[in-house]
Amino acid sequence: MKYAFYPGCVSKGAAPELYRATIEVCKKLDIELDTETMEGASCTGSGVLQEKNEKLGDTLNARTFAMGENSGLPIMTICSTCQGVMSQARSRMADLEYRESVNSSLSDENLEYKGQAEPRHLLWIIIEDIGIEKFKEKIVKPLTGLKIAPFYGCYIVRPSDVLGFGENPERKHSLEMIIEAVGAEVADFPGKSACCGFPILTINEKNSMKMVSNHTLSAKKEGAVAMVTPCPLCHLNLDGYQPTASKQVGQPIDLPILHLPQLIGLALGIDPKVLKLNQHIINTESVVSALALTP
């Protein structure tokens, strides 16, 4: 299985540990990553650019999709926000007339989005291309006894119609499926598909921090020892700003937040250091030592 890898800005910038962990995990899962095809691909616009100019955002994504199509490989993402923004762009460009007008801007570079490329998150690829049973066979260090809270990130769950939940209903529970497949237990809590607060961090920090403390504390109440997310932007807020959130609510939180590939990597027996679990703001030692105790 080979994919054109679209890492997204954050895994190349503020969350390098996600990039590393993805590379290591894909090796173990026999997922071959072509890291060159997408080198010239731009940011998806992350919804912010679309706020100002939707068509421009769609044009940038059409350009990325065209690069994927030219390589003949399916596109893999590792960010809920990238995934959602791309899925939305794709759904708008299902309209032929609109797609043609978008494509007309790409002609300088000899690129054309033909409507075939369908970027998918690693989370979905594991379930849809590898298959959950096959994936389970690869687990060498089941995370038995660990209770993990899922946190999706808005853009990978809404709007459900553009994300293909109709044709692929398992996408709705994909994160829980992975948590169970790696041998851990799901700490279910009401905020799992709510907003992490990142988009309003600079606009209304108080509200943003309240979201962080609400989610992390309610996950802890359900017994979670860690939270896992397929979205590096959620990670930035839930991990990077957890100390600020904790100060605001006036109580300690200390809930480690793992990137999806890090959780999977632990169960595949990859060294936590290789997965860069030491690069988090919230110390992940508690997860690593809990894991050391499992048989």
Binding site: E51, C154, Y155, R158, P159, A194, P199, I203, S208
Partner: peptide
């Protein structure tokens, strides 16, 4: 208007 966090719950 700027306090919306673009979570799309309302759209959904």
């Amino acid at each position: 208007m700027w306090d919306c966090t673009r979570c799309m719950q309302c759209v959904e």
